[in-house]
Design a protein around this nucleic acid. Structure first.
Lengths: 228, 228
DNA sequence: ATTATCTATAGATCTATAGATAATGC
DNA sequence: ATTATCTATAGATCTATAGATAATGC
């Protein structure tokens, strides 16, 4: 299946989202008591691994890099992630995607029925996050993983990022708020721009997140032509 | 210096472009007789290396991968590129950027004075190219190189991609064709979308390059709101 | 007993160098 | 003599495993 600028090549089913979803949710904040919670030490590993992996990608970062940043030995990482580098990476990306999913959901829920405000809130969210380099993730990182991990992460990307935004555009089209353009394509373009916003914000502070979010959404909705 | 969604951290000078430019040009098609031309064998190496590097990035591709795809031994690559992996990668990227520079220049020149047609032609060009994953290049690949190579490639990215597009938007703003939005930001967003178009076209053929280019430029110029 | 680290190391792989070989052109 | 490859290998590095160690909790 092709999804806008991102090709998520799995047999996705829109109505299965919530089911897939609940499985992925249970590690975030234990709604039950005896949830398998993540220790502080493991948390620290994830934090550092996330920073490095998101900065340079899966292939460029070695376990030694991560261990060194944590002031520990490379072999010690296997205590927290017996599955090694791949398991660590998959866990990191899942955690990032959960955060994005929550951020997007919150943005959509807070400004319900106002597309411009919804998109603004999403853009502001992206502007405040460290860059995830989504295209690089899809393009370079995920293909380096095992078939099972690939499928798992592609599914999560779809559920966390693609589906909610696509649904928002599709709904806005149905009620006539925006004109009819292939929603997959809009979503892909939107995510590409959002990814760029994160990147720009991380490497510069000439423009505030608020202004940048507002300008980009204005271009997307109103276009670049002068308001006559 | 910050440039739209891409941070090109060098002291660029717009007026120096052509000077920097001529140096990089001389390897494309010998305007003089005794130009150091590239042999067929070296050409083949560059073609294969380009495909692999652009597909998965600098860190993920080994010299062995490239040699294997060429049906030769890894050590033989050092005959063509004594500087090893880094020199090969830099040469590949320079060649790609020269191609893009020429394609963009052609698009701009053919439709001079018509911004929409110019952007359409650029979008069509991107849609027909294999994806270059520009954000990944800036974000993951270039930082892995030596300081000298970093500077060289950042300069080339600026000269080949960023400057011509930025100048086009800036000129259109001056004559009032488009409204005033930070040109660096528009350029960054435009390149992010173009990169996405390449990616999408490479992974799907549901939408023709022409339609995709037209729709994306229409969104950029006219916006998503319904034409009343 | 559990948690979280360490040392040591096997085995694989990667870059790069040295020097041989074979074909072609002068 | 030049071009384009090869074999062999040094040296570095990377992932992963085995087993020891030390601190804390029961």
């Amino acid at each position: 299946m092709q999804c806008g600028l991102l090709s998520v090549s799995m047999a996705f089913n829109f109505q299965q989202d919530s089911a897939v979803n609940n499985v992925a949710m249970d590690n975030v904040a234990g709604s039950e008591g005896p949830e398998q919670t993540v220790s502080d030490a493991t948390q620290r590993v994830l934090d550092v691994a996330e920073r490095l992996f998101m900065q340079r990608g899966y292939a460029a970062i070695t376990l030694r890099d991560i261990a060194q940043a944590l002031d520990m030995k490379q072999a010690s990482l296997y205590y927290h992630f017996p599955g090694g580098k791949e398991q660590l990476f998959v866990t990191v990306v899942q955690r990032v995607l959960e955060r994005y999913k929550a951020g997007i959901h919150q943005a959509l829920a807070t400004h319900r029925l106002d597309l411009r405000q919804q998109l603004m809130a999403i853009a502001l969210w992206f502007a405040q996050q460290p860059p995830m380099n989504l295209l690089g993730l899809m393009h370079a990182d995920i293909p380096a993983l095992s078939q099972a991990s690939q499928a798992e992460l592609l599914d999560s990307v779809f559920v966390a990022l693609f589906a909610p935004i696509r649904n928002t555009f599709a709904a806005a089209q149905q009620i006539g708020t925006i004109r009819t353009v292939d929603p997959d394509m809009i979503t892909g373009a939107f995510l590409a721009i959002m990814d760029g916003i994160s990147y720009r914000q991380a490497h510069s502070d000439e423009i505030s997140p608020e202004v940048m979010a507002q300008e980009m959404i204005s271009v997307l909705l109103d276009g670049l032509h002068p308001a006559t």
